[in-house]
Simulated assay, not measured.
Amino acid sequence: MGSLYYGESTDPIHVEDRALAHLKVVISTKLRRNESFTLSWKHADPDPSGRSTIWLHPSIPLRFVFDAPEAPELSREWIEALAHSASSSGGISLVEEQVAIS
C-alpha cells in the first residue's frame, strides 16, 4: 500500500502501489503543464466509509511513497482512462483497473 502526501498534511492518503504508479504518471503530466484538477477516491478500510476529493495545483507540495522497491508495469489503457477523467469537469476518479479479456 503506497501513500500520497498532499500539501502540509502529515496524514497520508493510502493508495495501492499499482494504482499510485498510474496516478503519478497522470498527475505529474497535468501538473507539469500547470493544469489544476481534482482527485476523488472512495475510502478504503479501515477508514470510515465515504469518499474524498482534493484539489491538485502545481504550487501545492505532493509526494508519492511506494511500498514496493520496483515500479510495476504500467497499463497504457488505465493511464489514458485516468488522463481522460482528469481533463473532465469531475477530475480524476480513482477507479479499479479494467482488464480487457480477449
Rank of each mutant, 00 (worst) to 15 (best):
S9D: 15
I54W: 00
S49A: 14
W78M: 08
A44T: 14
I27G: 00
G2C: 02
P58K: 07
E8G: 05
S40Q: 05
D67Y: 01
S89L: 12
Q98E: 12
L31S: 08
E97F: 01
A71K: 13
I27M: 02
A83H: 04
L20M: 11
P46N: 03
I60K: 05
P46L: 02
L23E: 07
P12C: 02
V95M: 03
V99F: 12
L39D: 00
S52W: 02
L4A: 06
H57A: 12
G50K: 08
A71M: 13
V65D: 03
V26C: 03
A68V: 10
D47Y: 15
R76I: 09
V25W: 01
E96A: 14
W55P: 02
S89Y: 04
L94Y: 01
F66E: 06
G50Q: 09
V15L: 15
S52P: 00
A83F: 07
E8N: 10
I13K: 07
S85E: 11
K30M: 11
S88G: 14
R32T: 13
E35C: 08
A81K: 03
A68P: 02
F64Y: 10
L20K: 05
E80R: 11
P46S: 04
E77Y: 04
S87E: 13
I92H: 07
S89P: 04
L74P: 02
S89G: 11
A100Y: 08
N34Q: 13
Y5W: 07
I60G: 05
H57T: 09
T53P: 04
H22E: 03
E77F: 06
R33D: 14
E96N: 14
L23M: 15
S59A: 09
S49T: 10
A68S: 14
V25H: 02
Y5L: 13
G50N: 11
V15I: 15
S59D: 07
E70C: 09
F66N: 09
E96Y: 12
S93W: 10
H43Q: 10
P48T: 12
N34S: 12
D17W: 00
G91N: 01
E70A: 15
E16V: 10
R63Y: 04
E35G: 04
E8W: 07
G90S: 03
A100I: 13
L20W: 03
Y5H: 08
I79R: 04
S28H: 08
E8Q: 11
R18L: 13
S40G: 07
I101V: 15
E97A: 00
E16C: 05
I13P: 06
L31Y: 09
L4N: 03
L39V: 15
A83D: 14
I27T: 00
M1I: 07
P69N: 14
V26F: 03
S88P: 11
P61E: 09
T10I: 15
G91H: 02
V99P: 01
S88D: 11
D45E: 15
R18Q: 12
F37V: 12
S93R: 10
S93Q: 08
D45S: 14
V99W: 12
F64S: 01
E70Q: 11
W78K: 05
R33Q: 15
E96C: 07
E35Q: 11
H84V: 12
